[in-house]
Amino acid sequence: MKRRTLLSALIAGAAMASPLAQAKPPIALKSVDVTLPGSTRELPSGPGMDAVQNHCLACHSAGMILTQPRMPKAAWEAEVAKMRNVYKATVDEKDVPAIVDYLTAIKGPK
């Protein structure tokens, strides 16, 4: 590959440590301006969905929940506690049971 040969030459040049030889940059970087897509996935309706929508989806889209495996209620309690305590999710204590129940309903053991 041409690029590698060029870069090997540049590295070899640098290794010789000639203070006068200013190596040509190996790449020209260009500014970037992009748009990130929004999520089009929706949570299944059910009791507690509003609480999940209002609190959980502030930090992550619904896909995070929809791709999770089925786990027991205790595991969902631990997840919600982690989101509140560690990631500082703005979830009121009073909304926790509704969120846990919703998650257990859609992602609890069969």
Binding site: S61, M64, T67
Partner: peptide, 9 residues
């Protein structure tokens, strides 16, 4: 493969 849209996975 879309795992999550935001933040992207």
């Amino acid at each position: 493969v879309l795992q999550r849209t935001r933040p992207p996975l």
